[in-house]
Design a protein around this nucleic acid. Structure first.
Lengths: 238, 238
DNA sequence: GGTTAAGGTCTACGGCGTTGGCATAAGGGA
DNA sequence: TCCCTTATGCCAACGCCGTAGACCTTAACC
């Protein structure tokens, strides 16, 4: 095993691989994202990633402690992209809403990657930056610390949970374009009304609805609650 | 490869394995659940499962088309357990709440299994039964079909999404009892207040809060919204 | 009791993550 | 400018994995 993984910032001797490409954490993560998109979530292997980079698989271990570590770096990348695509307006509710949607969108842009990473806390810089931002919005809006932390928790978990769930649905569609691609029209629409009256009665609505994410609605519901909490507080800032 | 997977109901010739155990879908699924709990989510392999059952690994392919199929059966088992542990009271809000918590609890009882299955739609009987039950509660409470379907969608996705997310947190704790077991006290509590004022100010609250699930709060928020929707309807049933 | 095939076992293949040893060239110091 | 150190690449190998296909054995049925 390589003695040690050298931090990216201290990496000075950049030797090209046999095929001429110069490696870096960023290049590896981006190549991994591309492979996940093209070959599905089972298609990311050290050997394949090495081949795509024109490098020996074992070289990856100079950059990441293992595939698990690489996975965390991918999650960090997605979180960073969400943050980069977001701008603050100064209005707390609008900002929280757009940040939540930015996270959700960023993850769903890479469903297979999202599946691997959305349920992991990485503790890396960009992720911490997101946490700090959310808490800043809430505290800046005048929420007390206890309320702010409670809302922060619900907010971030909701975003990640739906990112993972919706990514799962998308990934299945992308990867296996099988006959059961639309389970809702194939299986559910055929259930007899004697045994499943409620599904039978609403099957046409279900088929439409289940292809959309419930996240925006649930997020708005959470923000409604936040607003209610805030209006109870003494002298809220405007 | 075995010619075909024989459906459990048509399975007649029950031959014991070399070590004397008589196999069945149920026994295999339960053994798999036990292995997941004891050896973590990476510990479930065909060879190990075979060994635990006293059977050759390839025998499993007489019962399931592959590990993927077995995974779906495990999800179905968890959903079935949730349903079995739940009883209807007739009050729609209480029933939805208890059913949501039952699903969440059932999955969290096997975090590693939940991680593998929570983001998959199986289309198997017990899962369909849950869907039918939720729609029945909503339509029975007087919700119109469009509202019922919208709420159903948010409800089931929320339950599964939080099951997966919280299971992830639990599984990490269970599996790798590492130094970073509590990232929230190790990493986050040490961030300097100059760069991360909001995290620093609330670190003590965060550490407590992040070890609980945000699911009950978010669920109640969703039910609040349902109640508001319902009170707008004409002549709601009691 | 003989026949049939369900349901076991055995063997093997290709691929996986990961490791330790080794070669080589990049960069710093003289 | 040239040498030295060592970071960073490559190679070969280990012990796993999922699963396919051939084969064997015995339960169920007439």
């Amino acid at each position: 095993m390589p003695k040690k993984v050298v931090p990216e910032t201290e990496r000075l001797r950049r030797r090209p691989t046999r095929r001429g490409t110069v490696l870096s954490e960023k290049l590896i993560v981006r190549t991994a994202l591309r492979m996940l998109r093209e070959h599905g979530s089972a298609g990311l292997t050290a050997r394949r990633l090495g081949a795509a980079l024109g490098a020996d698989p074992s070289t990856l271990y100079r950059y990441f402690a293992g595939l698990d570590d690489l996975t965390r770096a991918i999650g960090e990348e997605l979180m960073g992209r969400a943050l980069d695509s977001w701008t603050a307006s100064g209005k707390w509710r609008a900002d929280l809403r757009s940040l939540g949607l930015a996270i959700h969108t960023s993850y769903l842009a890479h469903p297979q990657a999202a599946l691997l990473t959305a349920s992991r806390v990485t503790g890396r810089p960009r992720e911490i930056e997101v946490d700090e931002t959310i808490l800043g919005i809430l505290r800046g809006a005048g929420f007390g610390d206890v309320d702010a932390v409670g809302l922060y928790h619900a907010f971030i978990d909701l975003a990640l949970a739906f990112a993972a769930l919706d990514a799962g649905a998308l990934a299945v569609k992308d990867e296996a374009r099988r006959a059961d691609e639309n389970m809702w029209t194939s299986t559910y629409a055929r259930l007899p009304s004697e045994t499943h009256p409620h599904i039978a009665a609403t099957a046409h609505l279900l088929a439409d609805r289940m292809n959309l994410s419930a996240y925006p609605i649930v997020l708005d519901t959470l923000l409604d609650r936040a607003e209610a909490v805030r209006s109870r507080q003494s002298r809220p800032k405007p």
